[in-house]
Write a protein that binds this DNA or RNA. Structure first.
Length: 638
DNA sequence: GTTTAGGATTCG
Protein backbone atom coordinates (compact mmCIF):
# COMPACT_ATOMS: atom_id res chain seq x y z
CA UNK A 1 0.00 0.00 0.00
CA UNK A 2 1.41 3.41 -0.90
CA UNK A 3 0.61 6.91 0.30
CA UNK A 4 -0.50 9.29 -2.42
CA UNK A 5 -0.67 13.03 -1.81
CA UNK A 6 -4.27 14.02 -1.33
CA UNK A 7 -3.94 17.25 -3.23
CA UNK A 8 -1.13 18.71 -5.21
CA UNK A 9 -0.97 22.44 -4.67
CA UNK A 10 0.21 24.81 -7.38
CA UNK A 11 2.00 27.92 -6.19
CA UNK A 12 1.79 30.99 -8.41
CA UNK A 13 4.89 33.15 -8.68
CA UNK A 14 4.13 36.71 -7.58
CA UNK A 15 4.82 38.12 -11.06
CA UNK A 16 2.04 36.00 -12.56
CA UNK A 17 -0.91 37.07 -10.45
CA UNK A 18 -4.18 38.02 -12.17
CA UNK A 19 -7.03 39.95 -10.61
CA UNK A 20 -10.13 37.91 -9.80
CA UNK A 21 -8.28 34.63 -9.26
CA UNK A 22 -7.75 32.59 -6.10
CA UNK A 23 -4.18 31.34 -5.75
CA UNK A 24 -1.65 29.71 -3.47
CA UNK A 25 1.57 31.65 -2.92
CA UNK A 26 4.86 31.47 -1.10
CA UNK A 27 6.86 34.53 -0.13
CA UNK A 28 9.31 36.18 2.20
CA UNK A 29 7.76 38.73 4.57
CA UNK A 30 8.99 42.17 3.63
CA UNK A 31 6.61 44.09 5.86
CA UNK A 32 3.83 43.17 8.24
CA UNK A 33 1.47 44.54 10.81
CA UNK A 34 0.88 42.05 13.62
CA UNK A 35 -2.84 41.24 13.93
CA UNK A 36 -4.81 44.08 15.48
CA UNK A 37 -8.47 44.77 16.02
CA UNK A 38 -9.81 46.63 13.00
CA UNK A 39 -12.52 49.26 13.13
CA UNK A 40 -14.88 46.66 11.76
CA UNK A 41 -15.63 43.34 13.38
CA UNK A 42 -12.41 41.45 12.62
CA UNK A 43 -8.73 41.35 13.42
CA UNK A 44 -6.59 42.59 10.58
CA UNK A 45 -3.04 41.88 9.53
CA UNK A 46 -1.35 43.54 6.56
CA UNK A 47 1.47 41.46 5.12
CA UNK A 48 3.73 42.34 2.20
CA UNK A 49 5.61 39.43 0.69
CA UNK A 50 8.16 39.08 -2.08
CA UNK A 51 9.50 36.04 -3.91
CA UNK A 52 12.32 35.13 -6.31
CA UNK A 53 10.60 37.11 -9.08
CA UNK A 54 11.35 40.17 -6.95
CA UNK A 55 7.68 41.17 -7.22
CA UNK A 56 5.92 42.32 -4.06
CA UNK A 57 2.37 41.59 -3.01
CA UNK A 58 0.58 43.33 -0.19
CA UNK A 59 -2.07 41.15 1.41
CA UNK A 60 -4.99 42.20 3.60
CA UNK A 61 -5.91 39.44 5.97
CA UNK A 62 -9.04 39.63 8.12
CA UNK A 63 -10.42 37.21 10.62
CA UNK A 64 -12.68 37.25 13.59
CA UNK A 65 -10.26 34.72 15.05
CA UNK A 66 -6.87 36.20 16.05
CA UNK A 67 -5.14 32.80 15.91
CA UNK A 68 -6.11 32.09 12.33
CA UNK A 69 -4.05 35.00 11.00
CA UNK A 70 -0.42 34.26 10.04
CA UNK A 71 1.92 33.92 13.02
CA UNK A 72 4.63 36.25 11.74
CA UNK A 73 7.26 37.34 14.22
CA UNK A 74 9.64 39.29 12.08
CA UNK A 75 10.57 40.54 8.66
CA UNK A 76 12.29 37.75 6.75
CA UNK A 77 9.88 35.06 7.95
CA UNK A 78 8.58 32.89 5.14
CA UNK A 79 4.86 32.36 4.58
CA UNK A 80 2.68 30.00 2.59
CA UNK A 81 -0.82 31.25 1.85
CA UNK A 82 -3.52 28.93 0.53
CA UNK A 83 -6.64 30.26 -1.15
CA UNK A 84 -5.64 33.90 -1.37
CA UNK A 85 -7.90 36.02 -3.56
CA UNK A 86 -6.15 38.43 -5.91
CA UNK A 87 -7.88 41.72 -6.57
CA UNK A 88 -6.68 44.92 -8.18
CA UNK A 89 -6.22 48.02 -6.07
CA UNK A 90 -4.70 51.21 -7.45
CA UNK A 91 -3.76 49.30 -10.61
CA UNK A 92 -1.72 46.80 -8.60
CA UNK A 93 -2.56 43.23 -7.62
CA UNK A 94 -3.51 42.92 -3.97
CA UNK A 95 -4.08 39.79 -1.93
CA UNK A 96 -7.04 39.31 0.38
CA UNK A 97 -8.09 36.24 2.28
CA UNK A 98 -11.24 34.45 1.24
CA UNK A 99 -13.14 31.38 2.33
CA UNK A 100 -10.79 28.54 3.27
CA UNK A 101 -7.74 30.79 3.62
CA UNK A 102 -4.92 29.10 5.52
CA UNK A 103 -1.34 30.02 6.24
CA UNK A 104 1.96 28.54 7.41
CA UNK A 105 4.87 30.63 8.66
CA UNK A 106 8.53 29.59 8.91
CA UNK A 107 11.62 31.18 10.25
CA UNK A 108 13.58 32.79 7.42
CA UNK A 109 17.03 32.04 8.82
CA UNK A 110 19.20 29.82 6.66
CA UNK A 111 19.75 26.50 8.39
CA UNK A 112 17.02 26.93 11.00
CA UNK A 113 14.66 23.96 11.38
CA UNK A 114 11.71 24.07 8.98
CA UNK A 115 8.83 24.00 11.44
CA UNK A 116 5.56 25.59 10.37
CA UNK A 117 3.72 27.92 12.71
CA UNK A 118 0.00 27.69 12.10
CA UNK A 119 -3.34 27.35 13.79
CA UNK A 120 -4.60 25.07 11.00
CA UNK A 121 -5.27 21.55 12.20
CA UNK A 122 -4.75 19.19 9.30
CA UNK A 123 -2.42 21.06 7.03
CA UNK A 124 -0.65 19.57 4.11
CA UNK A 125 3.15 19.69 4.15
CA UNK A 126 5.32 17.79 1.67
CA UNK A 127 9.01 17.53 0.87
CA UNK A 128 8.27 19.96 -1.97
CA UNK A 129 7.16 22.52 0.63
CA UNK A 130 10.37 21.92 2.54
CA UNK A 131 12.34 22.62 -0.62
CA UNK A 132 10.29 25.74 -1.32
CA UNK A 133 11.07 27.17 2.12
CA UNK A 134 14.75 26.43 1.78
CA UNK A 135 14.91 27.95 -1.68
CA UNK A 136 13.26 31.13 -0.42
CA UNK A 137 15.70 31.26 2.50
CA UNK A 138 18.63 31.06 0.12
CA UNK A 139 17.17 33.69 -2.17
CA UNK A 140 16.29 36.01 0.72
CA UNK A 141 19.78 35.74 2.17
CA UNK A 142 21.14 37.63 -0.81
CA UNK A 143 18.12 39.68 -1.88
CA UNK A 144 16.50 40.86 1.32
CA UNK A 145 18.42 43.09 3.68
CA UNK A 146 19.20 40.78 6.58
CA UNK A 147 16.41 41.02 9.10
CA UNK A 148 17.72 43.60 11.49
CA UNK A 149 19.68 41.89 14.23
CA UNK A 150 17.95 41.64 17.53
CA UNK A 151 18.14 45.04 19.20
CA UNK A 152 18.70 44.69 22.91
CA UNK A 153 18.12 47.35 25.52
CA UNK A 154 21.86 47.92 25.86
CA UNK A 155 21.89 48.92 22.18
CA UNK A 156 19.11 51.46 22.17
CA UNK A 157 19.85 55.08 21.59
CA UNK A 158 17.71 58.18 21.90
CA UNK A 159 15.33 59.00 19.03
CA UNK A 160 15.03 55.50 17.71
CA UNK A 161 12.28 53.16 16.55
CA UNK A 162 13.02 49.50 17.10
CA UNK A 163 11.48 46.11 17.82
CA UNK A 164 12.05 44.77 21.31
CA UNK A 165 11.94 41.14 22.39
CA UNK A 166 11.38 41.04 26.13
CA UNK A 167 9.64 39.48 29.09
CA UNK A 168 6.74 41.17 30.84
CA UNK A 169 7.40 41.75 34.54
CA UNK A 170 4.58 44.07 35.45
CA UNK A 171 1.71 46.10 34.08
CA UNK A 172 -0.53 48.86 35.29
CA UNK A 173 -3.35 51.00 34.03
CA UNK A 174 -2.30 54.64 33.91
CA UNK A 175 -5.33 56.34 32.42
CA UNK A 176 -7.86 55.77 29.67
CA UNK A 177 -5.41 56.30 26.82
CA UNK A 178 -2.20 54.87 28.18
CA UNK A 179 -1.06 51.69 29.88
CA UNK A 180 2.25 50.85 31.53
CA UNK A 181 4.32 47.75 30.76
CA UNK A 182 7.40 46.91 32.82
CA UNK A 183 9.71 44.64 30.83
CA UNK A 184 13.30 43.43 30.71
CA UNK A 185 15.59 41.63 28.28
CA UNK A 186 18.55 40.97 30.56
CA UNK A 187 20.61 43.95 29.41
CA UNK A 188 20.88 47.44 30.74
CA UNK A 189 20.00 50.59 28.83
CA UNK A 190 22.73 53.19 28.30
CA UNK A 191 20.56 55.66 30.21
CA UNK A 192 18.29 54.75 33.11
CA UNK A 193 14.68 54.20 32.11
CA UNK A 194 12.11 56.77 33.04
CA UNK A 195 9.70 55.77 35.78
CA UNK A 196 6.04 56.27 35.01
CA UNK A 197 4.05 57.40 38.04
CA UNK A 198 1.28 55.00 38.98
CA UNK A 199 -0.64 54.17 42.10
CA UNK A 200 1.05 51.20 43.81
CA UNK A 201 -2.09 49.14 44.08
CA UNK A 202 -2.69 49.07 40.31
CA UNK A 203 0.65 47.40 39.52
CA UNK A 204 0.23 43.77 38.57
CA UNK A 205 3.32 41.57 38.88
CA UNK A 206 5.74 40.32 41.51
CA UNK A 207 6.86 43.43 43.44
CA UNK A 208 9.96 41.75 44.87
CA UNK A 209 11.10 40.62 41.42
CA UNK A 210 10.47 44.07 39.96
CA UNK A 211 12.42 45.57 42.85
CA UNK A 212 15.32 43.14 42.42
CA UNK A 213 15.54 43.79 38.68
CA UNK A 214 14.78 47.48 38.84
CA UNK A 215 17.93 48.56 37.02
CA UNK A 216 17.32 46.10 34.24
CA UNK A 217 13.66 46.97 33.93
CA UNK A 218 12.25 49.60 31.64
CA UNK A 219 8.89 51.33 31.70
CA UNK A 220 6.96 51.43 28.44
CA UNK A 221 3.83 53.47 27.91
CA UNK A 222 1.51 52.08 25.27
CA UNK A 223 -1.27 54.23 23.91
CA UNK A 224 -4.73 54.13 22.37
CA UNK A 225 -5.40 50.91 20.45
CA UNK A 226 -2.53 49.11 22.19
CA UNK A 227 -4.08 49.64 25.65
CA UNK A 228 -6.65 46.89 25.10
CA UNK A 229 -3.96 44.43 24.01
CA UNK A 230 -1.71 45.36 26.93
CA UNK A 231 -4.48 44.85 29.45
CA UNK A 232 -4.79 41.18 28.60
CA UNK A 233 -1.09 40.34 28.50
CA UNK A 234 0.07 37.84 31.09
CA UNK A 235 2.91 38.77 33.40
CA UNK A 236 5.83 36.46 32.63
CA UNK A 237 4.99 36.13 28.95
CA UNK A 238 7.49 36.80 26.21
CA UNK A 239 6.63 39.70 23.97
CA UNK A 240 7.75 41.49 20.91
CA UNK A 241 6.94 45.18 20.75
CA UNK A 242 7.10 46.55 17.25
CA UNK A 243 8.28 50.06 16.43
CA UNK A 244 8.87 51.03 20.00
CA UNK A 245 10.02 54.65 20.22
CA UNK A 246 12.76 55.96 22.49
CA UNK A 247 13.24 59.50 23.64
CA UNK A 248 15.94 60.82 25.91
CA UNK A 249 14.67 63.36 28.38
CA UNK A 250 16.37 65.68 30.75
CA UNK A 251 14.46 66.08 33.97
CA UNK A 252 15.32 68.33 36.86
CA UNK A 253 15.63 66.37 40.07
CA UNK A 254 15.07 67.74 43.57
CA UNK A 255 18.61 69.06 43.86
CA UNK A 256 18.23 71.01 40.61
CA UNK A 257 20.73 68.81 38.79
CA UNK A 258 19.77 67.63 35.36
CA UNK A 259 19.00 63.93 35.15
CA UNK A 260 18.79 62.05 31.90
CA UNK A 261 16.28 59.30 31.45
CA UNK A 262 15.19 57.21 28.52
CA UNK A 263 11.49 57.11 27.71
CA UNK A 264 9.82 54.24 25.86
CA UNK A 265 6.59 54.82 23.96
CA UNK A 266 4.44 52.56 21.85
CA UNK A 267 2.41 55.24 20.11
CA UNK A 268 -1.14 54.78 18.96
CA UNK A 269 -1.96 53.44 15.50
CA UNK A 270 -0.44 50.65 13.43
CA UNK A 271 1.90 52.61 11.15
CA UNK A 272 5.13 50.80 10.41
CA UNK A 273 3.68 47.69 11.97
CA UNK A 274 3.48 49.27 15.39
CA UNK A 275 1.98 46.73 17.79
CA UNK A 276 2.46 43.98 20.32
CA UNK A 277 2.70 40.25 19.80
CA UNK A 278 3.06 37.45 22.32
CA UNK A 279 5.85 35.09 21.28
CA UNK A 280 5.31 31.40 21.68
CA UNK A 281 7.76 29.10 23.44
CA UNK A 282 10.05 27.24 21.09
CA UNK A 283 10.67 30.31 18.98
CA UNK A 284 14.42 30.77 18.57
CA UNK A 285 14.20 34.42 19.60
CA UNK A 286 12.51 33.36 22.82
CA UNK A 287 15.28 30.84 23.45
CA UNK A 288 17.83 33.55 22.89
CA UNK A 289 15.94 35.89 25.22
CA UNK A 290 15.75 33.26 27.93
CA UNK A 291 19.51 32.78 27.75
CA UNK A 292 20.02 36.52 28.08
CA UNK A 293 17.69 36.62 31.09
CA UNK A 294 19.50 33.74 32.75
CA UNK A 295 22.92 35.26 32.26
CA UNK A 296 21.76 38.76 33.10
CA UNK A 297 24.24 40.59 35.22
CA UNK A 298 22.21 40.96 38.36
CA UNK A 299 25.13 42.68 40.02
CA UNK A 300 24.35 45.48 37.62
CA UNK A 301 21.35 46.11 39.81
CA UNK A 302 23.27 48.66 41.76
CA UNK A 303 21.44 51.15 43.93
CA UNK A 304 19.43 53.47 41.72
CA UNK A 305 21.77 56.13 40.47
CA UNK A 306 20.60 58.72 38.07
CA UNK A 307 23.13 60.10 35.72
CA UNK A 308 23.82 63.68 36.56
CA UNK A 309 25.43 65.46 33.68
CA UNK A 310 25.79 68.89 35.15
CA UNK A 311 27.81 67.69 38.07
CA UNK A 312 29.87 64.87 36.68
CA UNK A 313 30.52 64.89 33.02
CA UNK A 314 32.30 61.57 33.19
CA UNK A 315 29.41 59.77 34.78
CA UNK A 316 28.10 58.49 31.49
CA UNK A 317 31.17 56.36 31.24
CA UNK A 318 30.55 54.77 34.58
CA UNK A 319 27.81 52.75 32.94
CA UNK A 320 30.32 50.68 31.04
CA UNK A 321 31.89 49.57 34.30
CA UNK A 322 28.62 47.86 35.12
CA UNK A 323 29.16 45.47 32.24
CA UNK A 324 26.74 46.95 29.76
CA UNK A 325 27.79 48.91 26.75
CA UNK A 326 28.08 52.66 27.06
CA UNK A 327 26.11 54.89 24.75
CA UNK A 328 29.35 56.03 23.20
CA UNK A 329 30.53 52.56 22.39
CA UNK A 330 27.21 51.82 20.79
CA UNK A 331 27.17 54.97 18.74
CA UNK A 332 30.70 54.49 17.54
CA UNK A 333 29.60 51.30 15.84
CA UNK A 334 26.45 52.78 14.45
CA UNK A 335 25.89 54.88 11.39
CA UNK A 336 28.70 57.14 10.35
CA UNK A 337 28.43 60.83 10.80
CA UNK A 338 27.93 63.22 7.90
CA UNK A 339 30.61 65.39 9.45
CA UNK A 340 33.90 64.47 11.05
CA UNK A 341 36.20 66.14 13.52
CA UNK A 342 39.56 67.31 12.28
CA UNK A 343 40.98 67.18 15.80
CA UNK A 344 40.07 66.34 19.40
CA UNK A 345 38.79 62.86 18.51
CA UNK A 346 39.76 61.77 22.00
CA UNK A 347 37.06 63.96 23.50
CA UNK A 348 33.96 62.13 24.72
CA UNK A 349 30.55 63.25 23.51
CA UNK A 350 28.33 65.31 25.74
CA UNK A 351 24.55 65.44 25.43
CA UNK A 352 23.26 68.90 24.53
CA UNK A 353 21.07 69.09 27.62
CA UNK A 354 24.22 68.81 29.71
CA UNK A 355 26.09 71.42 27.68
CA UNK A 356 23.25 73.88 28.11
CA UNK A 357 23.66 73.69 31.86
CA UNK A 358 27.38 74.39 31.87
CA UNK A 359 29.28 77.65 32.22
CA UNK A 360 31.36 79.09 29.38
CA UNK A 361 34.00 78.88 28.07
CA UNK A 362 34.13 75.18 27.38
CA UNK A 363 34.76 72.83 24.50
CA UNK A 364 32.46 69.93 23.74
CA UNK A 365 32.06 67.15 21.28
CA UNK A 366 28.46 66.54 20.27
CA UNK A 367 26.52 64.23 17.99
CA UNK A 368 23.38 65.86 16.77
CA UNK A 369 21.09 66.44 13.83
CA UNK A 370 20.87 69.69 11.92
CA UNK A 371 17.26 70.58 12.59
CA UNK A 372 17.51 73.84 10.66
CA UNK A 373 19.96 76.51 9.60
CA UNK A 374 20.02 80.22 8.88
CA UNK A 375 20.22 82.07 6.61
CA UNK A 376 18.36 79.97 4.09
CA UNK A 377 19.79 81.77 1.05
CA UNK A 378 23.38 80.92 0.30
CA UNK A 379 24.49 84.39 -0.74
CA UNK A 380 23.21 85.76 2.57
CA UNK A 381 25.59 83.50 4.46
CA UNK A 382 28.75 84.76 2.74
CA UNK A 383 30.41 87.61 4.65
CA UNK A 384 33.77 89.35 4.82
CA UNK A 385 35.74 88.88 8.00
CA UNK A 386 38.73 90.87 9.19
CA UNK A 387 41.23 88.58 10.91
CA UNK A 388 42.72 91.60 12.69
CA UNK A 389 39.76 93.52 14.13
CA UNK A 390 37.34 90.58 13.73
CA UNK A 391 34.70 92.78 12.20
CA UNK A 392 32.23 91.21 9.82
CA UNK A 393 30.77 93.00 6.87
CA UNK A 394 28.53 92.27 3.97
CA UNK A 395 29.98 91.54 0.55
CA UNK A 396 29.19 94.73 -1.43
CA UNK A 397 26.49 94.40 -4.07
CA UNK A 398 27.45 94.90 -7.69
CA UNK A 399 25.36 98.09 -7.70
CA UNK A 400 27.60 99.73 -5.17
CA UNK A 401 30.69 98.67 -7.13
CA UNK A 402 29.21 100.34 -10.22
CA UNK A 403 28.67 103.54 -8.28
CA UNK A 404 32.19 103.65 -6.85
CA UNK A 405 33.69 103.10 -10.28
CA UNK A 406 31.45 105.76 -11.80
CA UNK A 407 32.61 108.24 -9.18
CA UNK A 408 36.23 107.26 -9.72
CA UNK A 409 35.84 107.76 -13.48
CA UNK A 410 35.20 111.47 -12.93
CA UNK A 411 38.74 111.72 -11.58
CA UNK A 412 41.00 112.94 -14.39
CA UNK A 413 43.95 110.58 -15.00
CA UNK A 414 47.23 112.36 -14.49
CA UNK A 415 49.52 111.85 -17.48
CA UNK A 416 52.55 112.49 -15.27
CA UNK A 417 51.77 109.24 -13.48
CA UNK A 418 51.85 107.21 -16.70
CA UNK A 419 54.74 105.18 -18.11
CA UNK A 420 57.03 104.84 -15.11
CA UNK A 421 59.73 102.34 -14.32
CA UNK A 422 57.08 100.18 -12.71
CA UNK A 423 54.60 100.04 -15.57
CA UNK A 424 53.86 100.93 -19.19
CA UNK A 425 50.64 102.88 -19.69
CA UNK A 426 48.08 103.20 -22.43
CA UNK A 427 45.22 105.67 -22.42
CA UNK A 428 41.92 105.79 -24.39
CA UNK A 429 39.23 108.37 -24.50
CA UNK A 430 35.74 107.13 -25.13
CA UNK A 431 33.80 109.06 -27.74
CA UNK A 432 30.23 108.26 -26.93
CA UNK A 433 30.43 108.34 -23.12
CA UNK A 434 31.13 111.98 -22.38
CA UNK A 435 34.84 111.68 -23.03
CA UNK A 436 35.59 109.22 -20.25
CA UNK A 437 39.28 108.41 -20.17
CA UNK A 438 40.47 104.90 -19.47
CA UNK A 439 44.11 104.25 -18.66
CA UNK A 440 45.67 100.85 -18.28
CA UNK A 441 49.06 100.50 -16.63
CA UNK A 442 50.84 97.21 -17.38
CA UNK A 443 53.10 96.33 -14.46
CA UNK A 444 56.56 95.11 -15.54
CA UNK A 445 58.82 92.50 -14.09
CA UNK A 446 62.41 93.71 -13.94
CA UNK A 447 61.59 96.24 -16.65
CA UNK A 448 60.03 93.65 -18.97
CA UNK A 449 56.34 93.21 -19.73
CA UNK A 450 55.18 89.68 -18.93
CA UNK A 451 52.66 87.69 -20.96
CA UNK A 452 49.18 89.07 -20.50
CA UNK A 453 48.07 85.93 -18.62
CA UNK A 454 50.80 86.61 -16.08
CA UNK A 455 50.50 90.36 -16.07
CA UNK A 456 49.23 92.58 -13.28
CA UNK A 457 47.46 95.66 -14.59
CA UNK A 458 46.23 98.85 -12.96
CA UNK A 459 43.17 100.54 -14.42
CA UNK A 460 41.88 104.08 -14.17
CA UNK A 461 38.38 105.09 -15.25
CA UNK A 462 37.18 101.59 -16.14
CA UNK A 463 33.63 100.30 -15.69
CA UNK A 464 32.83 97.10 -13.83
CA UNK A 465 32.17 95.34 -17.14
CA UNK A 466 35.52 96.43 -18.53
CA UNK A 467 37.35 95.38 -15.39
CA UNK A 468 35.61 92.01 -15.39
CA UNK A 469 36.55 91.49 -19.03
CA UNK A 470 40.17 92.52 -18.47
CA UNK A 471 40.44 90.25 -15.45
CA UNK A 472 39.77 87.27 -17.68
CA UNK A 473 42.65 88.24 -19.98
CA UNK A 474 45.19 89.52 -17.48
CA UNK A 475 46.31 87.82 -14.33
CA UNK A 476 45.25 90.52 -11.88
CA UNK A 477 43.55 93.87 -12.01
CA UNK A 478 43.88 96.71 -9.49
CA UNK A 479 41.41 99.57 -9.95
CA UNK A 480 43.26 102.85 -9.23
CA UNK A 481 42.92 106.62 -9.53
CA UNK A 482 45.40 109.43 -10.00
CA UNK A 483 46.33 111.26 -6.87
CA UNK A 484 48.85 114.04 -6.03
CA UNK A 485 52.05 112.02 -5.99
CA UNK A 486 51.13 108.59 -7.21
CA UNK A 487 48.33 106.33 -8.28
CA UNK A 488 46.32 104.96 -5.40
CA UNK A 489 43.74 102.25 -4.91
CA UNK A 490 40.10 103.29 -4.77
CA UNK A 491 37.92 103.39 -1.69
CA UNK A 492 38.20 100.05 0.11
CA UNK A 493 34.47 99.50 -0.49
CA UNK A 494 35.86 98.36 -3.85
CA UNK A 495 37.98 95.23 -4.26
CA UNK A 496 41.64 96.23 -4.17
CA UNK A 497 42.47 93.30 -6.43
CA UNK A 498 40.46 91.29 -8.95
CA UNK A 499 41.69 87.94 -10.19
CA UNK A 500 39.40 86.27 -12.68
CA UNK A 501 36.11 86.32 -10.82
CA UNK A 502 37.56 86.65 -7.34
CA UNK A 503 37.17 90.02 -5.68
CA UNK A 504 39.69 90.71 -2.91
CA UNK A 505 38.66 93.26 -0.32
CA UNK A 506 40.60 95.05 2.42
CA UNK A 507 39.57 96.18 5.87
CA UNK A 508 38.78 99.88 6.00
CA UNK A 509 39.57 100.08 9.68
CA UNK A 510 42.84 98.19 9.76
CA UNK A 511 44.41 99.18 6.43
CA UNK A 512 46.86 102.07 6.07
CA UNK A 513 47.15 102.60 2.35
CA UNK A 514 50.54 102.99 0.74
CA UNK A 515 51.27 104.41 -2.74
CA UNK A 516 51.12 102.14 -5.77
CA UNK A 517 54.86 102.54 -6.38
CA UNK A 518 55.30 100.23 -3.39
CA UNK A 519 54.48 97.41 -5.80
CA UNK A 520 57.99 97.83 -7.15
CA UNK A 521 59.30 96.20 -3.99
CA UNK A 522 57.40 93.00 -4.86
CA UNK A 523 59.36 90.08 -6.20
CA UNK A 524 58.11 88.75 -9.54
CA UNK A 525 56.40 85.73 -8.05
CA UNK A 526 54.82 87.69 -5.21
CA UNK A 527 53.32 90.18 -7.64
CA UNK A 528 50.36 87.95 -8.29
CA UNK A 529 49.66 86.85 -4.78
CA UNK A 530 46.76 88.76 -3.20
CA UNK A 531 48.27 88.61 0.26
CA UNK A 532 51.63 90.00 -0.95
CA UNK A 533 49.96 92.75 -2.95
CA UNK A 534 47.84 93.62 0.08
CA UNK A 535 50.87 93.70 2.34
CA UNK A 536 52.94 96.13 0.24
CA UNK A 537 49.91 98.35 -0.25
CA UNK A 538 49.28 98.49 3.50
CA UNK A 539 46.00 96.61 3.16
CA UNK A 540 44.71 94.08 5.70
CA UNK A 541 42.84 91.64 3.46
CA UNK A 542 39.38 90.48 4.42
CA UNK A 543 38.58 86.81 4.43
CA UNK A 544 35.42 85.41 2.82
CA UNK A 545 33.54 83.28 5.31
CA UNK A 546 30.27 81.41 5.56
CA UNK A 547 28.45 82.67 8.62
CA UNK A 548 25.53 80.48 9.57
CA UNK A 549 23.51 79.49 12.59
CA UNK A 550 22.89 75.78 13.00
CA UNK A 551 20.06 74.52 15.16
CA UNK A 552 21.46 71.26 16.49
CA UNK A 553 19.30 68.63 18.15
CA UNK A 554 20.54 65.39 19.70
CA UNK A 555 17.28 64.33 21.30
CA UNK A 556 18.35 65.62 24.70
CA UNK A 557 18.17 69.27 23.84
CA UNK A 558 18.49 71.90 21.16
CA UNK A 559 21.44 74.21 20.77
CA UNK A 560 22.10 77.10 18.42
CA UNK A 561 25.68 77.18 17.24
CA UNK A 562 27.41 79.60 14.89
CA UNK A 563 29.53 78.43 12.08
CA UNK A 564 32.13 80.83 10.71
CA UNK A 565 34.20 79.09 8.13
CA UNK A 566 36.23 80.06 5.09
CA UNK A 567 36.67 76.65 3.48
CA UNK A 568 37.19 73.96 6.12
CA UNK A 569 33.64 72.95 7.06
CA UNK A 570 32.04 72.57 3.63
CA UNK A 571 35.42 72.19 1.89
CA UNK A 572 34.20 74.85 -0.51
CA UNK A 573 36.01 78.20 -0.53
CA UNK A 574 33.63 80.95 0.53
CA UNK A 575 35.79 83.31 -1.55
CA UNK A 576 34.83 81.57 -4.80
CA UNK A 577 31.26 80.54 -4.29
CA UNK A 578 29.54 83.81 -5.19
CA UNK A 579 31.03 83.70 -8.67
CA UNK A 580 30.73 79.99 -9.33
CA UNK A 581 27.43 78.29 -10.19
CA UNK A 582 28.92 74.83 -9.85
CA UNK A 583 30.14 75.51 -6.35
CA UNK A 584 26.73 76.88 -5.44
CA UNK A 585 25.04 73.72 -6.68
CA UNK A 586 27.57 71.67 -4.77
CA UNK A 587 26.97 73.67 -1.61
CA UNK A 588 23.19 73.23 -1.98
CA UNK A 589 23.71 69.50 -2.29
CA UNK A 590 25.76 69.36 0.88
CA UNK A 591 23.35 71.43 2.92
CA UNK A 592 20.37 69.43 1.61
CA UNK A 593 22.16 66.29 2.65
CA UNK A 594 22.87 67.59 6.15
CA UNK A 595 19.35 68.98 6.56
CA UNK A 596 17.16 67.21 3.99
CA UNK A 597 13.99 69.09 3.11
CA UNK A 598 10.68 67.27 3.28
CA UNK A 599 11.60 64.44 5.62
CA UNK A 600 11.39 63.97 9.36
CA UNK A 601 14.25 65.14 11.54
CA UNK A 602 14.67 61.62 12.92
CA UNK A 603 15.84 60.44 9.52
CA UNK A 604 18.40 63.23 9.10
CA UNK A 605 22.02 62.16 9.21
CA UNK A 606 24.03 62.54 12.38
CA UNK A 607 26.57 65.31 12.60
CA UNK A 608 29.61 64.92 14.76
CA UNK A 609 30.61 68.43 15.80
CA UNK A 610 33.09 70.15 17.98
CA UNK A 611 31.70 73.27 19.61
CA UNK A 612 33.08 75.89 21.96
CA UNK A 613 31.03 78.03 24.27
CA UNK A 614 31.81 81.64 25.12
CA UNK A 615 30.23 84.50 27.00
CA UNK A 616 28.94 87.62 25.37
CA UNK A 617 27.62 90.63 27.17
CA UNK A 618 24.66 92.51 25.78
CA UNK A 619 24.26 95.58 27.91
CA UNK A 620 23.77 94.10 31.35
CA UNK A 621 22.70 90.68 30.09
CA UNK A 622 25.24 87.92 29.81
CA UNK A 623 24.66 85.17 27.35
CA UNK A 624 26.44 82.00 26.39
CA UNK A 625 27.00 81.41 22.71
CA UNK A 626 28.34 78.41 20.85
CA UNK A 627 30.53 78.14 17.81
CA UNK A 628 31.33 75.14 15.66
CA UNK A 629 34.98 74.53 14.87
CA UNK A 630 37.43 71.83 13.80
CA UNK A 631 34.58 70.04 12.04
CA UNK A 632 34.30 69.15 8.38
CA UNK A 633 31.80 67.51 6.07
CA UNK A 634 32.82 63.88 5.58
CA UNK A 635 34.98 63.28 2.51
CA UNK A 636 32.65 60.71 0.94
CA UNK A 637 29.78 63.15 0.96
CA UNK A 638 31.47 65.84 -1.10
C1' DG B 1 -24.23 39.04 4.97
C1' DT B 2 -20.83 43.39 5.05
C1' DT B 3 -16.90 45.98 6.84
C1' DT B 4 -12.48 46.23 8.37
C1' DA B 5 -7.64 48.39 5.31
C1' DG B 6 -5.47 49.47 1.23
C1' DG B 7 2.34 49.76 4.84
C1' DA B 8 4.75 54.73 5.07
C1' DT B 9 6.10 56.34 12.83
C1' DT B 10 4.03 60.41 17.90
C1' DC B 11 3.65 64.84 19.25
C1' DG B 12 1.30 61.51 25.08
Amino acid sequence: MSLVPVTSYIYTPLNQLKGGTVVNVYGVVKFFKPPYLSKGTDYCSVVTIVDQTNVKLTCLLFSGNYESLPIIYKIGDIVRFHRLKIQVYKNEPQGINCAGFASLTFEGTLGAPVIPRTSSKGFNFTPADHKMVEALRVWASTHISPSSALVQLCDVQPMQYFDLTCQLLGKAEVDGTSFLLKVWDGTRTPFPSWRVLIQDQVLEGDPSQIQRLQNLTIDILVYDNHVQVAKYLKVGSFLRLYSLHTKLQSVNSENQASVLSLEFHLHGGTSYGRGIRVLSEGNSDVDQLKKALESADLTASLPPEAICQSEHEDNLLSLSSSGSVSLYEVERCQQLSATILTDHQYLEKTPICAILKQKAPQRHRIRAKLRSYKPRRLFQSVKLHCPKCHSLQEVPYEDSLHRILQDAATNIPDSKLQNTSLYDSKAWTTEDQGGRTVVIHFVKNNGILPLSSECLILIEGGTLEEITKLSSTFHSVIPVKSSQEDLEVLDLSMPFLIQEKAHHYGCKQCSHLKPIQSLSSLAESAQRSPSSVAEVLGIVPLQYVFVMTFTLDDGTGVLEAYLMDSDKFFQIPASKILADDNLQTHMDMIINMLCPPGIKVDTYPWLECFIKSYNITNGTEQQICYQIFDTTVAEDLI
